[in-house]
Structure formats: C-alpha cells, structure tokens
Amino acid sequence: MNEKSYKRILIIGCSGAGKSTLSVELANRLQLPALHLDALFWNEGWVPTSKPEFREKLQSELEKPAWIIDGNFNSTIEMRAQYADLIVFLDFPNWLCLMRVFKRRWMYRGKTRPDMAEGCPEKVDWEFVKFIWTYPKKKRPGVFQMLERSDAEVLILKSPREVENWLAALSKGDMD
C-alpha cells in the first residue's frame, strides 16, 4: 500500500514504547497533523479532563480528514480504531518501556515534555510504574482483541529495530 493512502494513523502501545516520538516522525514524513492524547486529556497541574468532555474533544479530532493520534487511553481505543486506516501497535517488552520512562523522567525533570499538556512536568509514581510493568498481562490481551475486530490495517512492531526498519521502508515507498 502506498504511504500516501494512509490518512488516519493510530499509534498505540505501552507507556514508554515511543508512541509520541513515532507520531512526530510520521507526521513530518507524511505531512499529517499529529495529536498526542496526553495533551488532549491533561490540563495544567495534571488535572484530568472529564471523560465526557475528553470523548467529545476526541470525537471532533477523529472526524477530521487526516491525523496521526498516539496514546493509550483504553477507554477510547475502540472509538479511535473505528476511524483509523492504519493502527501501529508498539508491542515492546515492559522492561524496555520502563527503562525509557525513567530516561524520559531524567531528561525532562522539572519540565513539561513536548507531547504533554503545558503545566504538567514529567513525573513517575508507583502507579505509573505498576501500569507499565503489568501492561503485558493486563492491557495487551485487550489490545489484541480490539485489533482482531478492527477493519484497519494493523502493523505490530516488537522492537525499536523493527520501527527503524519500517521507517526505512516507508522512506523508500515500500510500506508492506
């Protein structure tokens, strides 16, 4: 499939897998707008948007003709998948994701990272670590169930090397 035929790309995976990094890279390459769900959901001071308001804001974004959306938020994964023509699942080991989250915490200590809502300085707490560590057993099975039901093309990448190889193929115009 030609890369230009992808207009709505959903990037999912465990926290720390590199969803936001990949979405920015793809947005630059494909000239599509990127939306980070964390930036849509969180407000200054880590105040969450109410679920109804978040779903309404997300629905408005999903109806746009082209986008790359990255993020977890399992409560809206089916909603997002309905609109996507490509779903990229970064299915990385939890130890790698955890290591990357700690690295990110160090890099952005006291600062807000670019893919986060303003006023939400980088943090790591026990609940977040637990979420990442248990992701393969608690969240991953549900992701696979959703992927099986989806009409979108699905790409499962299991390592940073597979991401690099896919991006290299994309650059050559060979997405398969």
Rank of each mutant, 00 (worst) to 15 (best):
M1F: 09
E3V: 11
E3K: 03
E3L: 13
S5P: 00
K7T: 10
I11R: 03
I12E: 06
I12A: 06
G13R: 00
A17E: 02
K19V: 06
T21V: 05
L22N: 02
V24H: 05
V24L: 10
V24S: 12
E25V: 05
E25L: 01
E25K: 07
L26Y: 10
A27T: 06
L30Q: 06
L32W: 00
L32R: 00
H36I: 01
L37D: 01
F41S: 02
F41I: 00
G45R: 04
T49A: 13
E53P: 06
E53M: 07
F54S: 08
Q59V: 01
Q59I: 04
S60W: 15
E63Y: 04
K64P: 00
W67D: 12
W67F: 03
W67I: 11
I68N: 09
I69S: 09
I69Q: 03
G71M: 00
N74W: 02
E78H: 11
A81F: 10
Q82C: 10
Q82V: 11
Y83E: 13
D85T: 06
I87R: 11
F89H: 13
F89N: 05
P93H: 09
W95L: 13
W95M: 07
L96S: 08
C97K: 01
C97W: 05
L98G: 11
R100D: 10
F102K: 02
W106P: 00
M107V: 08
M107D: 11
M107F: 02
Y108E: 07
Y108P: 02
K111Y: 04
T112A: 08
D115K: 03
G119D: 07
V124Q: 06
W126M: 13
V129L: 13
K130Q: 15
W133R: 04
K138R: 12
V143T: 15
M146D: 05
L147C: 07
L147R: 03
E148K: 15
E148F: 05
E148N: 12
E148I: 06
S150I: 07
D151S: 15
E153R: 15
V154A: 10
V154M: 12
L155Y: 07
K158A: 13
K158W: 10
E162V: 09
A169H: 15
L170I: 03
S171R: 06
K172V: 10
D174M: 03
M175K: 14
M175T: 15
M175Y: 09
